[in-house]
């Protein structure tokens, strides 16, 4: 059987993790191609709805990553983000959504190795858990039903 190739979206801040991922590249450290990055100015910009949209469009896993505490380019965006994640994870968990599928991390602009590790470990973990069928079931089926309606 062919190995399951999970779809993983990474939402990262421009100043730390995006730059860290750039460094992973400059250092030619290899990681799995399953993860694709969407750039945000700051983790503070990452709205919880964005994570929901990723799941319902077929993501099996999500990475959210930004600057370490105290290192935020905007000084405090990541602190606000952290609070929201604490609450949001609680809600997801209570609603029956698998928080194992969202990996939160702090990866600085100097942590090229760490970024590769975060990606590889997340891919590994999601491979083990398998496709997000619960969400896929409602997402794919409904999207089919009203194609064109929600998707512009």
């Amino acid at each position: 059987m062919q190995e399951f190739e999970p779809k993983i979206v990474a939402f990262v801040c421009n100043w730390c993790t995006y730059a860290g991922a750039d460094l992973t590249g400059t250092s030619r450290i290899k990681y799995s191609a399953n993860v694709k990055i969407i750039r945000f100015p700051c983790t503070g910009r990452i709205d919880f709805m964005i994570l929901m949209k990723a799941f319902e469009n077929g993501a099996d896993g999500i990475i959210v990553s930004g600057c370490h505490p105290n290192d935020c380019h905007y000084s405090t965006g990541n602190f606000h983000a952290r609070r929201r994640w604490i609450v949001f994870r609680n809600l997801l968990n209570f609603s029956g959504i698998d928080t194992e599928r969202i990996q939160f991390s702090w990866v600085s602009a100097a942590e090229g190795f760490k970024w590769a590790d975060v990606v590889n470990n997340t891919v590994k973990k999601i491979r083990e858990i398998g496709p997000y069928e619960n969400y896929n079931k409602i997402a794919v089926s409904t999207l089919f039903k009203e194609e064109g309606a929600t998707n512009e």
């Binding site: 105290n70 602190f79 606000h80 952290r82 609070r83 994640w85 990996q103």
Partner: peptide
């Protein structure tokens, strides 16, 4: 509002 503020040492155990 709890989500309009933060403490630098807000505790969590899931961010790596």
């Amino acid at each position: 509002y709890a989500l309009s503020t933060y403490k630098p040492d807000d505790k969590e155990n899931f961010i790596i």
